[in-house]
């Protein structure tokens, strides 16, 4: 019994260790898997640097970076919503790459400035809602056009949105309404919408997907996800709220303490370049790239035609604001009814 166990342990250890070799960039990616794979492939072809890539959600990456602080096992973190990138930057988990951002759009430069070069903007995703036209017609409801429409009692039990305690998307919605209507008014509207909500999902993209499949009538989420579903053939329509809407900033960060800083910098420069960002369309990435020269899709939402708020990432990304707003949401919105289980 003893001898086989020891030799087996030694064997596994040897296998694992021999598989690990240096001169490779370790990237953790929070975008869609296909987009992660494509970017890694193109980067390898264009720069000759070998990339090992794994996909994890932003919350998981942040938790991992915190646990690995001081001895990180990944070099670069690319994609996903910007708030966790900003938190990582403020906690010193990431480091400035020194990449040149002067050619990027204004919001990407602002983000770089705000985080002292630690997080660089790579895309913008606009917040909106989606409805399933088949289910809406079946129920004989009018299509919503504004945030306040969602508060109408007609939509009781028809709306789905994520729980801001678990989802960055839903927190963006919460912060957007606060910036749009002022805090007290926003919570009033949210509570009214909350009365119509059938389920607070855990994942931010779940309401949009559920709408496409007719599991709910209306979903709140990011519009680039919605464009993709519509193109796939689901009976859905997109709505940019009439009062104006907020957005997320996707980012790329270099992990503090990486032994591969040079290659990491090359990765950052590549993902903010036009040739790096343009291929996104091949795999159905419809958010707005940070490089003005990158290709975009005519059906994708663009910032010029949609009324946008001036989203204050510094204030609403800060953890004390988050905790206060989330605590208020818990008492005034979640516990105020709604979430009807039919």
């Amino acid at each position: 019994m003893k001898y086989p166990t020891i030799s087996a342990l030694a064997l596994t250890a040897a296998m694992a260790a021999s598989a690990a070799s240096a001169d490779q960039l370790n990237v953790v990616c929070s975008n869609e898997q296909t987009w992660c794979d494509l970017m890694a492939q193109n980067f390898k072809i264009d720069t000759g640097i070998d990339v090992a890539m794994v996909r994890k959600s932003t919350g998981e990456v942040l938790a991992q970076l915190r646990a690995e602080k001081g001895n990180p096992k990944v070099d670069v973190w690319w994609g996903g919503t910007g708030d966790p990138h900003i938190i990582a930057a403020s906690e010193g988990l990431t480091t400035a790459s020194g990449a040149d951002v002067s050619g990027l759009l204004g919001w990407a430069q602002n983000m770089t400035e705000m985080t002292e070069g630690r997080a660089i903007g790579v895309h913008v995703g606009l917040l909106g809602f989606i409805y399933n036209s088949e289910v809406l017609a079946e129920k004989g409801l009018a299509a919503p056009a504004c945030w306040r429409d969602l508060a109408k009692p007609d939509y009781k039990g028809e709306i789905q949105v994520a729980n801001p305690n678990s989802s960055g998307t839903a927190y963006t919605e919460l912060a957007t309404l606060v910036q749009l209507f002022g805090e007290d008014e926003a919570f009033k509207v949210l509570a009214e919408i909350g009365a119509n909500v059938n389920q607070y999902t855990k994942s931010g993209s779940a309401p949009v997907k559920a709408t496409a499949r007719g599991e709910t009538t209306i979903g709140i989420g990011f519009m680039h996800d919605m464009v993709k579903l519509k193109k796939e053939g689901f009976p859905v329509e997109l709505v940019a709220p009439c009062e104006g809407t907020g957005y997320e900033l996707g980012a790329v960060s270099v992990v503090e303490g990486t032994p591969n800083l040079e290659a990491a910098k090359k990765w950052v420069e590549y993902v903010i370049s036009a040739e790096g960002q343009s291929p996104g369309l091949e795999v159905g990435v419809y958010n707005i790239p940070s490089n003005p020269d990158a290709a975009t899709d005519p059906d994708a939402p663009d910032m010029a035609s949609i009324k946008l708020i001036d989203y204050d990432f510094a204030t609403y990304g800060a953890s004390d604001t988050r905790e206060r707003l989330l605590a208020r949401w818990e008492t005034e919105v979640k516990n105020a009814g709604g979430a009807i289980e039919e």
Partner: peptide, 19 residues
């Protein structure tokens, strides 16, 4: 899971999240 040792379930979850 790490970039060098990714597992099937992690791959599947990523695809499910992406619809």
């Amino acid at each position: 899971v790490s970039a060098r040792h990714n597992l099937a379930t992690n791959f599947i979850v990523g695809r499910v999240e992406n619809n």
